[in-house]
Write a protein that binds this DNA or RNA. Sequence first.
DNA 1: AATAATGTCAACCGCCTAGAC
DNA 2: GGTCTAGGCGGTTGACATTAT
Length: 291
Amino acid sequence: MGRSPLSADETGLKKGPWLPEEDGKLISYIHKHGHSSWSALPKLAGLNRCGKSCRLRWTNYLRPDIKRGKFSQEEEETILNLHAVLGNKWSMIASHLPGRTDNEIKNFWNTHLKKKLIQMGFDPMTHRPRTDDIFSSLSQLMSLSNLRGLVDLQQQVPFEDQQALQNLQGEMAKLQLLNYLLQAPHLAMSSSNNNNPNELSILNLLIKENYNTNNLPSLKTLEENLFSQNNSPIWSHEPPSLNQTMMPSHDPSPLGDDLVLNQASSSHEQEVAATGSVDWPDHLFDDSMFP
DNA sequence: AATAATGTCAACCGCCTAGAC
DNA sequence: GGTCTAGGCGGTTGACATTAT
């Protein structure tokens, strides 16, 4: 823990971890005299430390009212709620948690809660659902699936492994489909607006009802169904090839900035907004697509 | 058992603000 | 109003602990 041991700065003041006897001197002095002046305290207490270091040691570690040990579920929820409102105002958050220091809360946030939120798909700063990670992860998987190695592998693996490889390719195809659907205009638009509460429900539904099943159409079939029918196209102009969906997530939509939403997608978005759920056009997933 | 990778958290650094002069 | 100083805060570091390989 802490810094380089027994080091001292140019003024000769000691830095680094505190020794038990230093703690003892600090505690003893504060019990007798209080800490009205941190700058004067070290000299008076017989410590070769700067006042700042003494204050930090006292407030973050030696203070008698400090609560030690794991954060309770209640404390965790309090921190999450307060952080959503206050942001990284650790001292303000700490003032709502008796016995906890701002430093402790900050550490707990950085080592636990932040990661937890990210894993749950939330932006730790805004506390809102994030889609960039989903796009990013998908695109990375897409890139992997596009590696020539997978194709080469198919020609090399023994017959008994072909089924496993086909399953892998099937999974990749599902990812491609999901990525493809996510980049449809109505979704692309919502991804630029983190305030859209429908993002998560759309993604959840996609994942739940499509990605996690084995009943997905082949990409080729999907592409044909998507673009051979002119009555209600999702895209307002020439659709991108499926290969175009393989670009990194941080790239703009494959359709570029001049993307224009057509009537169908607009009404679809309205439907999503109104119902919180998605009803995909039947022609995209008709029975003939499921072998 | 040895080594590497990852997690934890006390402590430091630098900046900001308020108050005194 | 300008300067100095102390106190406070948030970000970051790095030694140690734990877990994975």
